[in-house]
């Protein structure tokens, strides 16, 4: 990822805005952009979704493969996430092997889903010790105007919730929906102009500091946390954003489940 020089003027302006409780695009501090979720958008994927948040656009595709279960877990299937942030989605994303930023994106999205247990690995068993389903989630960025984390996480859940296990194509039974028992959702916060804001624009990310990603399950259980980039935050700041995350994750959950 090529980082352009951050103009001092931008940082100063963001601080000024923050002092007046304002943001670049007129949103409130904890206000997110409008989220558009469409499912069934990829003809070759067994589950898919497209999510648009402002000018940020991503795709998620779920595909299934048959794997040999690990010897220590003969009745378990597998789950894997791969995040592709290719040069198509922004002038600042360069060609080459996955950047640390792209890798972090994939791993953080993965953890939120995996740790929630929303996919029952035992339910993916086909033949104990011999065959099981591997669920592969590919999230793909098309346009980056900030907050790829939440866009990916939202698209991932929408795709998983509408995924169909292709038993017929692999000749191991009937097609059936992938059982997803809960809907973990992610909310990301960025320190901009001195305080944490929700759903940062790319310009806010450039002029900002550290970020925090929170994934919560249906019952507000915490399933994953990640702090990224340089900076330090207080317990009080964390409490404030966690409170927002609880209500916002619920809203996103409703959106994805309907």
């Amino acid at each position: 990822m090529a980082t352009p020089p951050v103009p001092e003027l931008l940082k100063t302006h963001l601080s000024k805005l923050a002092e007046n409780d304002e943001r670049l695009d007129g949103r409130d501090r904890f206000e997110g952009r409008d989220v558009i979720v469409e499912t069934g958008v990829l003809a070759r994927a067994e589950g898919s979704a497209r999510v648009q948040m402002g000018d940020t656009i991503v795709l998620a595709g779920v595909k299934f493969q048959i794997m040999t279960p690990y010897p220590d877990r003969p009745t378990s299937g597998g789950f894997m996430t791969s995040a592709e942030v290719r040069p198509v989605c922004g002038v600042h994303w360069e060609a080459g092997p996955p950047s640390p930023e792209a890798i972090e994106l994939g791993r953080v999205v993965d953890r939120g889903i995996r740790e929630s247990g929303c996919i029952d690995m035992e339910d993916l068993c086909i033949l104990p010790g011999e065959k099981a389903w591997q669920v592969i989630l590919d999230v793909f960025a098309l346009s980056d105007d900030g907050n790829l984390f939440d866009a990916f996480a939202t698209a991932a859940m929408a795709a998983l919730r509408t995924a169909i296990i292709p038993g017929e194509r692999f000749d191991v039974g009937e097609d059936r929906p992938l059982p997803v028992s809960k809907t973990p959702m992610m909310c990301s916060y960025h320190r901009v102009g001195g305080r944490f804001v929700y759903d940062a624009l790319r310009r806010e990310e450039i002029g900002g500091g550290e970020r925090i990603h929170i994934t919560l399950g249906d019952d507000n259980h915490v399933h994953s946390l990640q702090k990224g980039l340089k900076g330090a935050f207080t317990a009080a700041e964390f409490d404030e954003i966690m409170e927002h995350a609880r209500s916002r994750c619920a809203e996103l959950r409703d959106l994805v489940n309907n």
Binding site: P7, L9, T12, H13
Partner: peptide, 15 residues
């Protein structure tokens, strides 16, 4: 060049 009338470093406002 910054030699010229009005040319300067800008320390306030936004671009």
């Amino acid at each position: 060049t910054m030699k010229g009338l009005g040319l300067r470093r800008i320390d306030s406002g936004i671009v």
